[in-house]
């Protein structure tokens, strides 16, 4: 069994108007030192063991086809091996 964490973020070339709006609010709070805020998405995924394919292969396929739109987003992931939960 694996716990996988996936982070999807806009590519650097893509404007993030929501992040800009949040940065504006942070500045109004008085934190002028905040230079930039980018908003992304975070997924926690549980994957059971299979001999058919590697967990990396599964996660990358899911990310490429569904979790991220690779035209404007990129992703990274962390895989942690855990004991089967009962």
């Amino acid at each position: 069994m694996y716990n996988v964490k996936v982070y999807v973020t806009y590519k650097e070339s893509i404007l993030d108007p929501q992040g800009e709006a949040v940065r504006g609010a942070v500045h109004r709070m008085g934190f002028d030192e905040i230079e930039d805020i980018r908003i992304g998405k975070y997924f926690e995924i549980k994957v059971s063991d299979t001999d058919d394919r590697s967990v990396e292969e599964v996660i990358e396929t899911i990310c490429d086809k569904l979790l991220a739109n690779v035209v404007m987003e990129s992703y990274r992931y962390e895989i942690e091996r855990v004991k089967e939960t009962v």
């Binding site: 893509i14 404007l15 108007p17 929501q18 709006a21 739109n69 035209v71 404007m72």
Partner: peptide, 9 residues
Amino acid sequence: GALQRNENL
């Protein structure tokens, strides 16, 4: 291509 959030939100 892709369709993003409107520029002015």
